[in-house]
Amino acid sequence: MKWFDYSAPSSLSEALKLLRENSQALLLAGGTDLLVQMRAGRKQTDLVIDIKNIAELNQLVLDASGLRLGAAVPCYRIYNHRDIARGYPALSDVASLIGGTQIQGRASIGGNLCNAAPSADAVPLLIALGAICRIAGPSGERTVPVEEFCTAPGKTVLKQGELLVSLHLPPPKPHSGAAYLRFIPRNEMDIAVAGAGVSVELNNGNFQSVRIALGAVAPTPLYAKQAGDSLAGKPVNDACIQTAAELAKAAASPITDMRGTAEYRRHLCAVLTARALKQAIQRAQEAK
């Protein structure tokens, strides 16, 4: 690894100024992706900007408008937060799934998203939950739905000089539940072969609305809109769940690599979607 300068600004404006002045600068939240990539020589820079000292990026606020999750908030703060465990249990699940204890002490959901890996575990769930990205840049702020944030492996909609400030999740609706499941050959420390994040809203034994998103089966985390929409108004039963699972499978366009064949991954999309739907339904039924 080559030497680099390190700067840890304490305000958003300072960080944006550094980014503007230094087109090659790289942002560091937890660094659990970035440092690995730099050590492997896949990324090089003269300046690393640490964003962990910026208040907006470390906020974790839960109120009537939903959840505001600063982009740099580490996973452990999420799963240790009682109200998140109650309101967004699937988000707690994901935060405790990424890496292991040491990684969770540093790794952020914002970093998981900005790294733009097709297999990023938090992203399918964020899509399912309808999260919105708040982005700051030289020309002010803008918002982008999470499903539009990643554009290719390692690529996002962020333009030169922009950074992700926070993620906004709408407040949980009554009779709703969400879940994320991934398949890994081991039981920890592994990259998803496939993943499925779902959220469901129920109404008198029927699905009101459903969002389904998939991980690791396309160049970016994938919003399987048709699969979720197919359930709206349908009764909660195995046949409907299976139909949605098959639609999710059809939406996937995986590759064959060391983690699994395309055929196997497509198959997992259906398995995981159905299993995640069942878990989300159970959560919705238990929710007030």
């Binding site: 050959p185 081991r186 039981n187 920890e188 990259i191 060391m258």
Partner: peptide
């Protein structure tokens, strides 16, 4: 169950890290 040298056709090991060379962990 899981360990193997996963080689590309041109002879490059694709999983040359302990993340991807899957030895069992205590949870397995």
């Amino acid at each position: 169950l899981n360990e193997e040298y996963y080689m590309s056709a041109d002879g490059v090991m694709q999983n040359s890290s302990l993340l991807d060379y899957r030895m069992p962990t205590s949870l397995d």
